[in-house]
Amino acid sequence: MKTLLDKLYIENDLSERELALLLQNMDSESEKQLFEYSSMLKTKHYGKSVYMRGLIEFTNFCKQDCLYCGIRRSNSNAERYRLSKEEILRCCEEGHVLGYRTFVLQGGEDSHYDDSKIIDLIKLIKSNFPDSAVTLSIGEKSFESYKSYYDAGADRYLLRHETASKRLYEQLHPGMSFENRINCLKNLKKIGFQTGAGFMVGLPGQTNEDLAKDLVFLKEVKPEMVGIGPYIPHPNTPIGKNSGGSLEKTLIMLALARLLLPDVLLPSTTALGTIDPLGREKALNAGANVVMPNLSPTNMRKKYELYADKICTGDEAAHCRKCIEGRINRAGFEVDMSRGDHPSKQA
Rank of each mutant, 00 (worst) to 15 (best):
L98I: 09
G108K: 02
N183Q: 15
T135K: 08
S142N: 10
H173Q: 06
A133V: 10
L98N: 07
T135Y: 08
D210T: 04
Y149P: 02
P204A: 02
Q206F: 06
D120T: 13
L188E: 03
S111V: 13
R160C: 01
I122E: 03
D120H: 13
T163Y: 03
I138G: 10
H161G: 06
D114Y: 07
C92E: 03
G95I: 01
E87D: 13
I138P: 10
V97H: 13
P174Y: 08
E170L: 02
V134F: 08
R101A: 03
E109M: 11
N187Q: 14
P130G: 11
N180E: 14
D114P: 06
Y149G: 01
F193Q: 04
M176R: 14
C91F: 06
Y113G: 01
I191N: 00
P130N: 11
G95Y: 02
K117N: 11
Y157H: 10
T102I: 04
E162H: 01
Y100P: 01
S165T: 05
D151Q: 15
K126F: 01
Y150R: 12
N208V: 02
K126C: 02
G196V: 00
D114W: 07
E109R: 10
D210W: 05
Y169R: 04
E109Q: 14
A164S: 11
R156N: 07
E144W: 12
S137R: 10
